[in-house]
Design a protein around this nucleic acid. Structure first.
Lengths: 126, 126
DNA sequence: CTGGGTGCAAACTCTTTGCATTCGG
DNA sequence: CCGAATGCAAAGAGTTTGCACCCAG
């Protein structure tokens, strides 16, 4: 019932930090290149475990795949609709009015996420 | 190259309004019950078309399936982490500070989405 | 009539699971 | 040692696509 520190977890966590906002599949590709023995299932299991323990965030933004973010500090995300890249945006203030409105609905708020859609600098140039 | 109004589209749009924030699969289930001849592919195609034309919003929140919202007015969503239900929250103000920060990153903003996570009134009672 | 839309089924992608094996503590 | 963690492969869930037929304009 106690958690164990394994090579795979370290490798996958490193990948998370290296590949900004990668999808599980991207993590797998990256990890598998350096350590072919690591299986897809393990990558998914470990990433899921990170999300559960709060070691990483699971981002479900536009796009079909789930992305992971090792930065667990509250912050926003800017999602480029052209290249699909996800950039971090310094968390400013939580939209308190929305928070209040939600509480009015009877919700007990645990968290929130903010995503901006747009075209990133690089894509604007083309 | 011109769009056509078909029975299926009407049926699916009605389903969208009836089933609050349904997933594509839920829409399919609902529509298929009343009109067994409507195929899954059509539901996905029509919903995708709605999203593209701006007739409906495509919500990619926590949870694996994509949800659709016929309410295209800007508004927030409150997502119950227990039952998975999605509730509308009156759009308050856009978090302008985050917007500004994003613009500083060089992004040309097209839109944004805000999601709150929590436990809805009904689930708190249990 | 004509080509956009639909139905069907097969294909695909991403993710999860069962089970025997491995190895961290 | 012992059971949590892996690897492999097969199963699932959700979504997309190819293609022939159909019907709205």
């Amino acid at each position: 019932m106690q958690e164990r520190q394994t090579k795979q977890k370290t490798i996958i966590y490193d990948a998370l930090k290296t590949l900004d906002h990668p999808t599980a599949t991207e993590v797998y590709g990256y990890v598998h290149e350096a350590y072919p023995s690591v299986s897809r299932a393990t990558v998914f299991r470990v990433l899921g475990g990170f999300a559960e323990k709060g070691t990483a965030l699971e981002l479900r933004l536009s796009g079909h795949e789930v992305r992971y973010d090792y930065n667990v500090m509250p912050h926003y995300h800017a999602h480029c609709t052209v290249c699909g890249r996800v950039a971090d945006v310094a968390a400013a203030g939580i939209p308190t009015d929305g928070l209040r409105a939600t509480a009015d609905c009877g919700f007990e708020i645990e968290g929130y996420s903010v995503e901006f859609f747009g075209i990133c600098k690089a894509c604007q140039k083309r």
